[in-house]
Design a protein around this nucleic acid. Sequence first.
DNA 1: TACGGCGTTCTAATATTCGGAACATGCCAC
DNA 2: GTGGCATGTTCCGAATATTAGAACGCCGTA
Lengths: 261, 261
Amino acid sequence: MPQADNGAGLSQSLERGLAILSAFTPERPALGISELARMLALTRSTTHRYVATLATLGYLQQDDSTRRYRLGPRVLDLGFSTLGSLELREIAAPHLRRLTDSTGHTSNLAIRDDTDVILIDRVRGRQGRYHHLEFSLHVGSRLPSYCSATGKALLAFMPRPELDRLLDRIDFVQRGPRTLTDRAALLAELENVRRTGVAVNDEELDSALRSIAAPVRSRSGEVVAAVNVAIPWSPVGMDELVSEYGPALRATARQIAAGVI
Amino acid sequence: MPQADNGAGLSQSLERGLAILSAFTPERPALGISELARMLALTRSTTHRYVATLATLGYLQQDDSTRRYRLGPRVLDLGFSTLGSLELREIAAPHLRRLTDSTGHTSNLAIRDDTDVILIDRVRGRQGRYHHLEFSLHVGSRLPSYCSATGKALLAFMPRPELDRLLDRIDFVQRGPRTLTDRAALLAELENVRRTGVAVNDEELDSALRSIAAPVRSRSGEVVAAVNVAIPWSPVGMDELVSEYGPALRATARQIAAGVI
DNA sequence: TACGGCGTTCTAATATTCGGAACATGCCAC
DNA sequence: GTGGCATGTTCCGAATATTAGAACGCCGTA
């Protein structure tokens, strides 16, 4: 059966094997061969061969009783060698901690991956309030950039043509009471970010969730990351919070940038 | 060129592709095609095809200036969906936090992967002392089980034949001033663990590093994880520390076990 | 200018992978 | 019980996806 060409000379087996690994999520932590085969439109025998390979390498584990498979510990190694490879993270760590110590609030370091941001470091503040979403965030979490402070800080300084192509791919979904749900509103907001050097998230991702972020620049001036502090809800206006936390954030971002080789 | 059979019907391409991903470490975060090809004894063209596949899928990123490759953000997703899939981690989280709050010390939840333990959750205590190794540990870290408290807690209750096979694979390296450097000493120590229900690490992994751990059992009675607290060095004797922290650890382990479905 | 190394592309040959068929097992309804 | 259905697993011939060599363009250095 001649198969459609994948495009350029890509490895079908590798692609399929990784698709199998990606099929496991916290919501579906255990999957059987037939289940996987249906999901990926493969035959059971082919699926079994990939799964057997992944299992012998330690990337999957078979449950003795149900005969289904789940992710194995080897997969963790992959993820954490990624984190360890990010020198930015090491440079930023002490500055993040200082930011949290001085403000009392949770701070994060985030990078952009296409239309998302990914938290690559996180220092939890005193767990005063208990915001469900905030609490569930952890290193490795993905958030849409259009409705997060770090995301806006990362988008604001992109070259315009690249930004336009990226915005085309964004699906503006209302996630909080004040989410910016169209491109024009986001663009206007990004203009504010460029003017003030600080990005805010005022209940755009979830209600009662606010945050302020600043971009981190590399030696060459490119924005490579963003730092933020999450601010528990209070009746204080956003402008006031920006005056209160903005300087510390900009300072932290500057200090991190100074350490980047 | 007929190639040696890998064993059973395993997927060569998948195996090689994953070997490429594994070749990236925090020490060697960026690798070129030729470099990878030499490491894995492959031709450059074959290596390139795998790398191109991994790059288009987002698992690798190419550095524009050096043309070398580094791990991409997609790899993080894999690792963290593993963590998210561990329901044990979610169950244990609040109990770990309580343990750290009440003792003031860093606590960990660990599972075993063959001869290693892997930290799957970690709550940092007040950073009073600054122990270099302790500080560098994080979720995802691997430690040898023979010289860690969690490791001994996890080994102690293994069925004897399985334990014997595992011990054969252990290389007893002196890592701290009191490392148990032979099998007999470790076996004797595991007997203590079974008797007291608590495992200790008294400068066996590194100097000035002590820790106490307790095993966590599943519904069926099997030991599936271990909790520990790291204890900053003090002139107090280990026995005294066990009396001080042992009950809280056993209680925490019991509470976690009670939550396991 | 010649050289060696690099990442990359192309291609013919074939080893590796594919998928249908068949087996053993466990589960459920009847 | 018993038949049916779904599962994980194994086998094997067919052929596709993969392989490795050669060649390209590029970049440094000698």
